[in-house]
Nucleic acid binder design. Sequence first.
RNA 1: GCGCCCAUAGCUCAGCUGGAUAGAGCGCUUGGCUUCGAACCAAGAGGUCGUGAGUUCGAAUCUUACUGGGCGUACCA
Length: 611
Amino acid sequence: MVGSENNQLASKTPFVSNNAFGSVSDMLTRIFAAAFSEMGIASELGKVVISERRDLSNYQCNGALAAARELKQNPRQIAEKIIDLVRKSQEREIFSTLSIDGPGFINIKLSDKFLIRTLRSLQQNKIIAPLPANELKHTMVDFGGANIAKPMHVGHLRTTLLGDCLQRLCRFLGLKVTSDTHLGDWGTQMGMLIAEMRHKFPELPYFKSDFNGPYPTESPVTIEDLEALYPQASKRCQSDKESMAQALYETTQLQNGVPYARALWQHFVNVSIKALKEDFAALGVYFDLWKGESDIHDRIPAILERLKKEGHAVTSNGALVIPLQDPTGKEEIPPLLLVKSDGAYLYGTTDVATLEERLEDLHVEQLWHVVDKRQSLHFKQFFLAARQIGMAGPNIQLEHIAFGTVNGPDRKPFKTRTGGVMKLKELIHQATDEARKRLAEMRAAADYDAAEREEIAKAVGIAALKYGDLMHDHNTDYVFDLEKFSRFEGRTGPYVLYAAVRIKAILRKAKEQSLAVGPITTITGIERELMLELLRLPDILYSTYHKRMPNYLCDYAYDLAYNFNRFYLECHILSEKDEDLRSSWLGLCDLCLFELETVLSLLGIDVPERM
RNA sequence: GCGCCCAUAGCUCAGCUGGAUAGAGCGCUUGGCUUCGAACCAAGAGGUCGUGAGUUCGAAUCUUACUGGGCGUACCA
């Protein structure tokens, strides 16, 4: 029979393989898909999802309803047959009940045996199955959006946290990842800075035409100087044509590699990178590469030549552009500009050259740009151009991971009280302050020494900040409310952290009392909910990856913490007299901590030992 | 003008392929600590899912028109 073959097929792809724990809903889907196809119905309809009616089931399959429309049959009868087939399969011991409710929903309850067996294997190995081999693409995450001479501010928060979460998640799921900030270290802004330096400090050796010796190894400016210099330079050039001409002149000197300009520029870059690394480090964010626009500058002429020769790039209104055709033919897409009429390169030019480098030298297969959604037209143009000129083939994934603005209570982009741009450093300080305040209010950690208290405040502050940001769907704007994010009640980082710390406290006490942390063996009541929650981890990780939606991780972390708190309240673990039950519960605590810490670490949040 | 996105409880937000009674947190009302950290938990009130029409057995979800808001629209990034 076809059917038994299908069932065997399903059982040959266990969701626990090589000790690695996979998706339960995928595993159930395989079983149901086999049953659907055995009935001659499209197997896609066998999709099993986590139940929306927790009171009725753990998982559900709605495929019979859709099948009923195609087959023009009664959905309940179809569901009946599906259930019969599943009951006959080798997998029947997974289920405690399979029932049909409403118009034809198949409600699935898992057996205790299955639940215990599965969690025990996870408990032993603590390995989550990586993505299937064909999905393990070399992924580049381009995020952070750092620039020379410009401080990191609140506008960099989302790209940094989102990008970092994505790179952590990809690595966790077995992908090869290369992250790159792609510094804005080239172009007119750099010329403007040099011109400003010449204007203010003409006595520096860089500006002496008769200077022969090597230029100083010490930077003439600090990061603070640079940050102050940049707005002045920018303002001067905007208001004064003469200054702009000077800036363009310096830009040319730099691009032609004239020593004084290069030397000065190198100082700017060094000083800036040092400061940027500190900013990122304060958030626990690290990059594999610190490439910049300057790195690909030399590639540009050859690319432009080729594009002109191949007819991809044409002159239009004095500029060199790639005309774009919308594949759907519906809308008109403005061309991608490569060279301005004054000869300067643009955003799109460096993007194309950088893409070439990433594809040819680094062999990246998947490229994610984590950038403000206001730039979506640019990325649409850039990606389309990359396809049109044949640079990115069909196997290359290009994606703009767009995010909305961080708003203040007035729903306008977040500002300081005085109306200025909030620096990232300042934001982290405020988060730490808020956490410190909360901890003091609750008289928490009062008996710890000052250094530990400070460390805890930092950890809690970062958790509040990161969770508060990442919990929101990145496609939309959100209201930044530090006071709210820092609460220990509700859907916040500190709440989740608290649950994890509670577990650590129990495990510590258990160890002190030499109580065994054993395999999970029993289900008595409320902990079943927690166990079902624990079963979802792989599903959550995979869907977070596939949708590129870290907010799923945040939701899940909260659900875990909440379910643990319920279990904790109801079951008094350490005082439990039944040794087996106690060690089973301790095992459950340990597993829950493992999952919480896993999810939090993907969000970039560390759990302190106590708080 | 054209294009993209958004509109869900008093507030901030979820809502996975079109599915059952639209969820959560905060706030509000009420209840639970001689026991592992009450920084917790439980219960309740609160909704014409922006408006109208359409597709469907079934729409917050898909189509369409409209209203209100955000953003972008060739030489900035």
